[in-house]
Design a protein around this nucleic acid. Structure first.
Lengths: 207, 207
DNA sequence: CGTTCCCATGAACGATCGTTCGAGAGGGCA
DNA sequence: TGCCCTCTCGAACGATCGTTCATGGGAACG
């Protein structure tokens, strides 16, 4: 099936491009760099993609769609707001850790997009942010008023999670599950004063 | 005094450059853009600065030095670890809110530097990070073991604080003092389970 | 007056950028 | 065989990049 071949080659190209964009930054990366990294000629890139802009857009929109799809999947059968928040964080960090390059590009090159591309991705971000805010609203409903403004809480949590590309090593000692639990507890402890309940976390000293 | 004139013009140039870098990104900004924004000719820029690289370095290193100096000033006479953390966060966010452009450039264009410039700024970052970690160690000493890994806590807090250039409006309804208090409580509540004590925060619904 | 020094400029340089174009290799099908 | 379709490429285009250079206005000083 020729169409599938083409689609797979585009997938591979996007993965290679995400790697290089994550490492060198979007604007610092030339189409010649991408040609070298993907093993295709410079002109050959334009058979699969209309422009460098579209390349960035495809990386961002596909990653985002995957994150949102995973979120809906993990939240589908969960009613308890606290548990929903845990799932939301797990999903976000899971995808982040297993697609560091793409997510770094999504988080860090947000303003590199323009026009309709930018508008489209921003729309997705707004919906995703709204999803988290709704979860927080649910928590407040069952656990009483929060200790701080919901908007501040939302962006603080996104800040914690989206900053990890600056320091987290998916291959290091710290597992994603532990990281997700830590972030959940850190957030919930401050947001509604939820105490740590089950098995305490390891207290390895800093490194 | 001619030297002071020159220094002041350099200051103004750096401020203008920070504004443009923050808005368009470092690599997207051309020296011609900066010439236009600062009212100097293209060649004239090179009288004050050796290269575009150095321009970015100066913005970053000066901002960082100011943040670190403010930190030392505010921590000088404070012994209580909890209070020290509060001052640390206040200082960071105060400077962030009053120098959004510079701090966005510092946070967002970290990897645009190269060679000695990069090494120098990274060294400052390491020291600053260490300062926060030491405060956390002090907190653990007086309040018992934390609920999560110190390294995760450190970077989570930096994530909350450094992410604000993505959403915070210094001219909006949310004041810096309130923001700093919120971040402090959010962090401490989750880190050591510190309950909210005095006057609760406003619970304005999201916007 | 002449000389010196600070500041500023227009014009140009070579390099690199994203993108295009014409050409052709190779397989499937008549 | 001849024709078409998919895929790939080298070479080139115009634009824009960071930087340099020769030049000169004008204040300061002898």
């Amino acid at each position: 099936m020729a169409n599938a071949d083409r689609s797979h080659k585009l997938d591979a190209l996007l993965a290679d491009a995400a790697r290089v964009f994550a490492q060198r930054g979007y604007h610092r990366t030339s189409m010649r760099d991408l040609a070298k990294a993907s093993g295709v000629s410079l002109a050959g890139l334009y058979y699969y993609v209309q422009s460098k802009d579209e390349l960035l857009y495809l990386i961002q929109t596909r990653s985002f769609d995957a994150v949102v799809a995973g979120m809906h999947e993990r939240l589908a059968s969960v009613k308890d707001p606290i548990e929903r928040l845990g799932r939301f964080i797990e999903n976000h960090l899971d995808y982040f850790a297993s697609h560091m390059a793409e997510m770094k590009v999504l988080s860090h090159e947000a303003e590199a997009l323009t026009g309709d591309y930018l508008h489209d991705v921003n729309e997705k971000k707004r919906e995703y942010t709204r999803a988290l805010m709704d979860i927080l609203a649910g928590i407040e409903k069952t656990h009483g008023p929060a200790h701080l403004n919901r908007r501040v809480a939302t962006y603080s949590l996104f800040g914690m999670m989206n900053w990890i590309y600056n320091w987290y090593d998916p291959l290091g000692d710290l597992g994603v599950e532990t990281l997700a639990q830590s972030v959940s507890r850190l957030f919930l402890g401050g947001y509604i004063g939820l105490p740590v309940t089950e098995g305490s976390l390891p207290h390895a000293s800093s490194g």
